[in-house]
Amino acid sequence: MRANAFLKGFVAIGRITVDGVWKIGAGTKFILNVISRSRMTFQRPRLLIDEIFFTGTLSLIIIIVSGLFVGLVLGLQGYETLKRYGSAEAVGTLVALSLVRELGPVVAALLFASRAGSAMTAKIGIMKSTEQLSAMQMMAVDPYARVVTPMFWGGFFSMPLLAAIFSAMGIIGGYLITVVVIGVDGGAFWSQMQANVDFHGDILNGIYKSIVFGFAVNTISLFEGFDCVPTAEGVSRAVTRTVVTSALAILALDFVLTAFMFTGV
């Protein structure tokens, strides 16, 4: 009996491992297929613009509001802490560094995965389950080139812009709460920030992070949509997997990138 249970457990581990390896392989093949069919996207900019609107513009509200609130909280918490050490003017630096290095790319990517990533998965999944992708193939139109690749590049270009807007809104939020409401000196707020935030070391590294997160979220979202079981339940499961896998991928990648970029590992 115990041997039987052990065998079942062993089989389950084996199945999970094989499925995992298969998914990594299929996902890699998928993304190479997508990228290799990019010509149409750049020959017909309208396709790209539509997808930037779908993934980027439609995500603006959540990014702006969240960025503002994160900045307000950072400013408040930062001021309360720094005040104890008599360096409340450094709050601008604290807000800006926290946002451009970490919170901007990470939180914007998490929001992007929840808003745009899930929408991409649902759109592709529904197109698959209602045979729209098959219909496209039968019309001699490659669904990768016509639908999936523009979505990938649309999301790819949107992500760093959204992260930048998130950080900018966060800094405005920090300014509003500390300078306008609490009364920290505005000149000190901006000058400390200007003196301590490095364009290459901080801002560019934050942008690189958001590019990597965008690549990961787009790959996961589109692959999950394309690979889903073509039923209502299959699509809903795929959307859930997109959000969960993307969140884990963003956090894991953030750790790796931070280790390389900011600690000199």
Binding site: I126, T130, E131, Q132, S134, A135, Q137, M138, M139, A140, D142
Partner: peptide, 19 residues
């Protein structure tokens, strides 16, 4: 294959129109 498909038309079971 894509050239051959241009010479075919297919009506799917529920139409498969682009929504």
């Amino acid at each position: 294959l894509y050239s051959a498909r241009r010479r075919m038309g297919m009506l799917f079971q529920f139409g498969a129109l682009f929504t």
